[in-house]
Amino acid sequence: MSVKLGPNRYGKAETRLVRVVRDGPVHHIQDLNVSTSLSGDMEAVHLTGDNAAVLPTDSQKNTVYAFATQHGVGQIEEFALLLARHFVESQPTIHHARVEIDEYAWNRGGPHSFVRDGGEVRTCVVHHDRDGRTTVVSGLKDLVLLNTTGSEFHGYIVDPYTTLRPATDRILATAVAAQWRHARDTDAYGKSYEQVRSCLLEAFADTHSLSLQQTLYAMGERALTTCGEICEVRLAMPNKHHFLVDLSPFGLDNDNEVYYAADRPYGLIEGGVLREDAPDAGFAWE
């Protein structure tokens, strides 16, 4: 039997970076989690332990800190592009770089005082290779949404193990993880982020939902038809079930008022929406 090396990559995961910009008495803060991953001529290190082609993960971490000092951070997509291009263009053995960044928001409490925002996390993933192909994917995660009505679920398959009752009025709640691929370069990632986020929120609120799948598609469709610079949206939406509590044993009515919020198990709905003429991404998004 013969074996061979398969696809591989390595890097430094979750480098924590907090950058403070002091503008006189008023300070500004950016809080990032940066993960780098590189691939290329890595056969020797796997087969014989020869490290000549390997840029240490510690060097990748230090590059993140050095570039934050030398170039600033700005929009996370721009910072990820800067890092990815540097790794590929500075090291002949590195053919592909993947940089993923999560950004945690802070709300201002004073000129130099901040309160951690409990809302969603902004994300991006950038791929760049030696052939000059680049993919920029922006996104968010942990965006918790809930509609108290306007959601139904019925007409589904009923088999011997089905106990779920049809619902014509239910709570619909989820924690959205969304990613959207840019069809072209832009210098307005922040504006694009706010626009897509607004589309997701508006479509979730506006859609009378017969299924979470329908809502997912409506959210992706709204983003694509509104934001011309993106060409594909992928969403993962857990169904955060809310079950009406049976209060009849206590002689009480429960007219869609008191619910039990279950954390697990949960339905997980995932899907993508893309333009028919969307260019090939060139890379897997992961």
Rank of each mutant, 00 (worst) to 15 (best):
C124V: 12
C124D: 02
C124S: 10
C124M: 08
V125E: 01
V125I: 12
V126A: 00
V126P: 02
V126L: 03
H127V: 09
H127P: 07
H127R: 07
H128P: 00
H128N: 02
H128V: 04
H128E: 00
H128Q: 05
D129P: 01
D129G: 04
R130M: 06
R130A: 12
R130F: 07
R130V: 15
D131K: 10
D131E: 15
G132Y: 00
G132R: 00
G132F: 00
G132H: 01
R133K: 12
R133G: 03
R133A: 02
R133E: 04
T134I: 08
T134C: 03
T135Y: 00
T135D: 03
V136K: 00
V136L: 05
V136E: 01
V137R: 12
V137I: 15
V137W: 04
V137H: 04
S138P: 02
G139M: 06
L140P: 03
L140E: 01
K141Y: 03
K141M: 06
K141R: 14
K141F: 05
K141P: 07
K141T: 12
D142E: 14
D142L: 09
D142G: 06
D142H: 12
D142W: 05
D142N: 09
L143Q: 04
L143R: 04
L143M: 15
L143F: 13
V144N: 11
V144A: 12
V144P: 03
V144S: 10
V144D: 14
L145V: 12
L145I: 10
L145S: 08
L145T: 08
L145R: 05
L146N: 04
L146K: 10
L146E: 07
L146I: 09
L146G: 02
L146V: 10
N147K: 15
N147I: 12
N147L: 15
T148K: 07
T148F: 10
T148V: 11
T148C: 05
T149A: 09
T149K: 08
T149H: 07
T149V: 06
G150H: 01
G150N: 05
G150M: 06
G150W: 03
S151Y: 10
S151V: 01
S151P: 01
S151N: 08
E152T: 15
E152R: 09
E152L: 11
E152C: 14
F153V: 12
F153P: 06
F153W: 14
F153K: 11
H154Y: 14
H154G: 10
H154E: 13
G155F: 12
G155A: 10
G155P: 13
G155H: 08
G155R: 09
G155E: 15
Y156D: 12
Y156Q: 14
Y156H: 05
Y156P: 07
Y156T: 11
I157H: 05
